[in-house]
Write a protein that binds this DNA or RNA. Sequence first.
DNA 1: ACCTGAACACCGTTCAAGT
DNA 2: ACCTGAACACCGTTCAAGT
Lengths: 185, 185
Amino acid sequence: MRSLAEQLGVAANALYSYFPDKAALLDGLLDHLLGDIPRPDTGLSDWRGRLAGIMRSTRALLLRYPDLIPLFLSRPGRGPNAMRLGNDMLEALAAAGLEGKKAAQALRILLIYALGFAAHEAPRRRDPAGQQRIRDSEQAFGGAAHLPRMRQLSGELAQHADDQTFETGLHWLLSSIAREAESPR
Amino acid sequence: MRSLAEQLGVAANALYSYFPDKAALLDGLLDHLLGDIPRPDTGLSDWRGRLAGIMRSTRALLLRYPDLIPLFLSRPGRGPNAMRLGNDMLEALAAAGLEGKKAAQALRILLIYALGFAAHEAPRRRDPAGQQRIRDSEQAFGGAAHLPRMRQLSGELAQHADDQTFETGLHWLLSSIAREAESPR
DNA sequence: ACCTGAACACCGTTCAAGT
DNA sequence: ACCTGAACACCGTTCAAGT
C-alpha cells in the first residue's frame, strides 16, 4: 500500500478513500489483469486448441506477475473478465462433449493445473541463485543412499519445470477429457 | 518468529542461534512434516493405487498446515523425507512403465496437481464467510448477461472444490500416465 | 469527497552486551 | 555456546483533523 501510494504521489492512507482494504484493491487488480488473456477464436471448432490456448495464456500471465499468484489461487474470481474466461472454457468443454457437473469439474481442474504450475515455477525463475540451487539438488539426489531411482534420475529431477513439462501435463488432462466425453458414466 | 519464540519461552532473536533466517527454519519444518506421509506398501504391485495414496496423503497433509502451502510450492524439497517420497513415486511410475525423462515429468506434474489443488482449497476452507461467498458467487454467475454457460452452471461453479473433483483430476492424470506407458514415443 | 500527519500494533532481523 | 534488551526498517490500518 505504501509503495503504491508513493508511485501515485499520495499518502498511503489516501488509498482507503477508494478501497476498504488491501484485499479489495487486489481483487480489482486481478480481474483487470485477466482482461489480457485473449479470447479463443470462437469460429474454431478445435476445442482442444482453444482450451490449450487459454491455459497457456493463463500461465504466461501469471509468470508476468509472480507476486500475485497466491492471490489468483486463493481468490474466488467472479469479476467480469474471470466470468468471460470461464464461459469460454465451458464453451470449449461443451464442444468436447462435457456438460453439467463434469464440465464444472474439468474447468476447475484445468485452472488449478495452470495456476499450480505457475506457482511452482515462478519462485524458481526469480531465484537469483537458481543455477547453484540446481547443482545442489543434483548432488543431493545423486548421493542419496538407498534411493536408486532418485540417484538414477538426479540430473532430470534437479532441473526446473519447463514448457515441455507444462505441455505434457496439459496434454494428459485434455486427452482424458476427450475420453471422458466418448465414454461417459 | 516472535510467536514461535514465545511458545518456546525465549526471546525472538534467540532463534537466530539455531537458524540463519526464517526460510531455513521453515525448510527444516517442511521436510519434518513430510515424514507424516505414509510409505506405500512396497509389496503391492498396484502402481496406480500406490501413486493415488501418496497424492491423497500429500493433499491431506497440506490441508492440515494451510499456512505452509505457499512454502511447499516454492521450496525445492531435497530433504531426506522429500527424497524418500520422490523415490517411492518413481518406483510406482517405473512399475507403470515410465522411465527417464517422462518419469521425471510425471513426478512433477502429479506433485504440482496435489499442491495446486490444496493451495486452491485451503483458503476457501478457512474463509469464515465461506457459505456467504458461495451464495454471492452463484448470484454473480447466475446473473451474467451474455454468458449462458456460466448462468447454466452457476450452481455447480459456485461450490468449493471437493474430494470428488480431486479424485477426478487424479484419475485423469493417472489414466494418461497408464496410456503413455502403453504407447511411448 | 478526498487528502493529510501521526500513531498503533505488528513484522524479521541486527547488534552489542551479558552469562 | 546461548541468550538478552534495544533498536532498525519495515508493514497495513485507524483516527482526528484539514480543505
